[in-house]
């Protein structure tokens, strides 16, 4: 069993989203985090204090570690946000806001 394998799921056709401008494939029903994981990306944010890499930690919306910028809106939880065709996902540095 591998979490990347679809356990008898039969999702609709794949669509394309971008991560920092690079095209990646996503499946309907996936969260942003699932799509990034499936594309082999495990980190998409750096911490505010020391710039350390972060991705999914709890995976259930509690820990706020997986924050990401989607369609210019920073600080969204990748583990809860369903991925939509054409989403522009950006890695987030610090607060995600310009100072």
């Amino acid at each position: 069993m591998n979490p990347l394998e679809l356990a008898r799921a039969q999702p609709g056709p794949a669509f394309t989203v971008t991560l920092d401008g690079r095209e990646i494939e996503a499946l309907p029903g996936q969260t942003i985090a699932a799509a990034l994981w499936a594309a082999g990306v495990t980190s998409w944010r750096t911490t505010r204090g020391e710039g350390r890499p972060r991705g999914v930690f709890c995976g259930i919306g509690v820990c706020f570690d997986c924050l990401v910028t989607v369609n210019d809106r920073p600080n969204q939880r990748a583990c809860l946000l369903p991925v939509q065709p054409g989403d522009a996902i950006r890695t987030q540095e610090g607060t995600g806001h310009e100072d």
């Binding site: 505010r48 924050l67 920073p74 600080n75 610090g94 607060t95 995600g96 806001h97 310009e98 100072d99």
Partner: peptide, 11 residues
């Protein structure tokens, strides 16, 4: 008492 927490922001 409730406390509301926003997204992280610059100061």
């Amino acid at each position: 008492g409730f406390v509301l927490v926003t997204e992280p922001l610059p100061r």
